[in-house]
Simulated assay, not measured.
Amino acid sequence: MRMKSFAIVAALALSTAIAGCSTIGSQIFTNNYGPMTDAGYQLPRIPIEKVPFKYRRQVVSYDTDEKPGTIVVDTQNKFLYYVMGGGEAMRYGIGVGREGFEWRGTARIAVKREWPTWTPPSAMIKRQPELAKFAGGMDPGLTNPLGARALYLFNKGGDSGYRLHGSPEWNSIGKAMSSGCIRLMNQDIIDLYDRTSVGAKVIVL
């Protein structure tokens, strides 16, 4: 009888974990990457089954002295943490700067934009002359490198030139491919955008 009761409890625990997409200490949002309409744009489904499990949006245990609302970017492990308090954070997989474009420091979110215009900096145009046609800005859209949202990072010197932004290139998450900006999957940057406030602290490790 005791074994039967244990089996029932175990089965219930397993079914609950599967239904809630959760694991011990975390909640996984695997089902949140489907197609969606946003500001008139039709974002396609992300083939999340092709994205490593660890890079999918999830609530994790996170011990920090930083106050809720702070963003901590772990460039080495390709994670971005949004501190929620209570020893937890929302964790997102990210793409980071390739070799020679890494950076670290503390900044704040000064501007938030939905479906932003992308303007390549002059140094990038010099490296890639084919981008000169976008010197006046690339219109928002599904192929825009900033994706569905952008959070503009400023420091004591003003605009750092770096952004936390979406990207149509979901397969770049977990890799070092950018020119220094931190990129997220579009569905993830929309989620992060809705959580963050102008003035929020951003720490890049």
Score class of each variant (00 low, 15 high):
S22T: 04
T70W: 04
M177A: 00
R57G: 15
W103D: 03
M3Y: 14
F53Y: 15
E99V: 08
F101W: 14
V59R: 14
L146V: 09
Y82H: 07
R183E: 07
G180P: 07
S167V: 04
I173A: 06
K201G: 11
P121N: 08
E169Q: 13
Y193I: 08
I18Y: 02
D65S: 13
W115M: 09
F53A: 14
M36V: 01
D191I: 01
A123E: 10
W103C: 01
M185P: 06
V111L: 12
A135L: 01
I71V: 08
A11G: 03
P168M: 01
N155H: 11
E102V: 11
G141L: 05
R163Q: 14
M3I: 11
Y41N: 01
D63Q: 11
Y41R: 03
E114S: 12
A17D: 02
E130F: 02
S5T: 15
R57C: 13
I190M: 06
G93A: 07
S178A: 07
F53C: 04
V83I: 14
E169F: 07
L43F: 02
R2S: 13
S5H: 15
G87I: 15
T117P: 08
G180Y: 12
T106V: 12
G147R: 08
A10S: 03
S122E: 14
Y33A: 05
M84K: 10
R91C: 11
A150M: 00
D63V: 08
G166S: 08
I8K: 13
D65N: 10
N144Y: 12
G166W: 07
Y81L: 07
V96Q: 04
S15I: 15
D63E: 13
Y62Q: 07
I190K: 02
M177F: 08
G157Y: 06
K156C: 06
P120W: 06
R2N: 13
G166D: 04
R113V: 11
L153G: 03
V96N: 09
I18P: 00
G161Y: 02
V202E: 04
V204R: 07
E99F: 11
L153V: 05
F53N: 15
D74T: 02
K4N: 11
E66Q: 11
L205F: 05
K4H: 05
G100F: 09
A135E: 08
L80N: 01
A150I: 10
L205M: 10
D139T: 03
G20T: 09
K4W: 15
G25E: 03
G166I: 14
M3G: 02
A11L: 01
K54D: 14
S22A: 13
W170I: 00
Q58I: 10
K78L: 12
R57S: 15
S26T: 14
Y162F: 14
I182Y: 00
K4C: 12
L43K: 00
K54N: 13
T117M: 10
N155G: 15
F53P: 05
L146S: 05
I125L: 10
F79Y: 15
K54Q: 15
V73Q: 09
A132E: 14
R183M: 08
V111Q: 07
G157R: 08
L12G: 04
N186M: 00
Y81T: 02
I71G: 06
G136Y: 03
